[in-house]
Design a protein around this nucleic acid. Structure first.
Lengths: 193, 193
DNA sequence: GTCTATATGACGATAGAC
DNA sequence: GTCTATCGTCATATAGAC
């Protein structure tokens, strides 16, 4: 079978798995659920992925890489810390509206419960990049001289909680409508006086 | 059997379940795990709880009520919004150090995946109480006039994220050592100018 | 590569003796 | 109330035909 065809089918499996994992949870989703939803046989599915966990891992890795690259691009485009961080929040809000399942899976899933993954999400590449920016912001005097972890959390925990509220359907309006107010709060909390 | 004896045993079951649920996750914990850890038989365990889900529900309800009462007491003791909210953060930090499993179970568990619970955690009694305080703070002019959800999140999302980092062993120091800096960030983000 | 059929095992829950 | 033994179910994963 052509490589592109194979890759396309793999993509479909990942997409359906993402939908089910976020909708019902990893443990409430059986391999049969995925297979049946795609009109594939079990055998075929196992031909594409070693096991259920492998699907979850590939999914996570793909989304994580995608976010990391977006952060790197933001870093290149914006040179000041405030601009960078606001752009990050903007990107996260936008992505949540466009692809809520991806955000939910990346941020609001207890991966350790089903993936043999060593580190917490907050030790992952995207978060390290964000921390890097914050520390640089402190060195440049743009951000107050407080504990770096506290500053990182003060900047991004609010927006990220807004995302989880939106995913849980507690916020009525789309996230971008909260961008300015939410960002204003975040920046006030850490900006140098 | 005496009522107190029965209640004591029920308490032990809940405690062990909490330990296992937070350590391995609900789905990775079997009823046998709980029973074996306590040297009880399956039959006995099912005599105390209708099923596995009932254990999870009772646990959640207990912890939730406990937090709610603490919030009410804080509300009585402190009259200004800043004092109230800082006391809440203090209480959450302290509780996390004393009983991390309780906090982890209440805040960082996807209850909907295994409990037939209608509402999100953020629509629960403790969070409604916190929102109430924030709105009152806005009416009194202590908190800036911004969207109430944004203000609520700006105040508490940071400290709550610190809690999750601590639970995930990413923060080295105990939470109370971060209290002042973390609270300062939160309050700066919403206080009236 | 894709399918059907099935092996294997675990888990939740119950039955029934004591 | 407490125990042991067991039932029914379902999920993951594999075997083997095509």
């Amino acid at each position: 079978m052509r490589d592109s065809k194979k890759q396309e089918r793999q993509e479909k499996i990942l997409l359906e798995a993402l939908r089910l994992f976020t909708e019902k949870g990893y443990f409430n989703t059986s391999v049969s659920d995925i297979q049946a939803a795609l009109n594939l046989s079990v055998g075929t599915l196992y031909n594409y992925f070693k096991n259920k966990e492998a699907i979850a891992i590939t999914l996570f890795s793909n989304i994580e890489n995608c976010l990391y690259e977006a952060l790197c691009e933001i870093e290149r485009k914006h040179l000041d810390t405030a601009g960078r961080c606001k752009a990050i929040v903007h990107h996260l809000f936008d992505t949540t509206e466009r692809a809520p399942a991806s955000m939910q899976y990346l941020f609001y899933t207890k991966h350790r419960e089903f993936m043999a993954v060593e580190k917490s999400v907050f030790a992952s590449l995207p978060f390290l990049k964000m921390k890097e920016m914050v520390i640089q912001g402190q060195q440049r005097g743009e951000i107050r001289d407080i504990d770096a972890d506290v500053a990182l959390v003060a900047l991004f925990a609010g927006p990220m909680r807004m995302i989880s509220l939106r995913i849980d359907n507690i916020l009525e309006r789309p996230l971008p409508t909260y961008l300015d107010e939410s960002w204003e709060c975040a920046w006030r909390s850490v900006k140098a006086v």
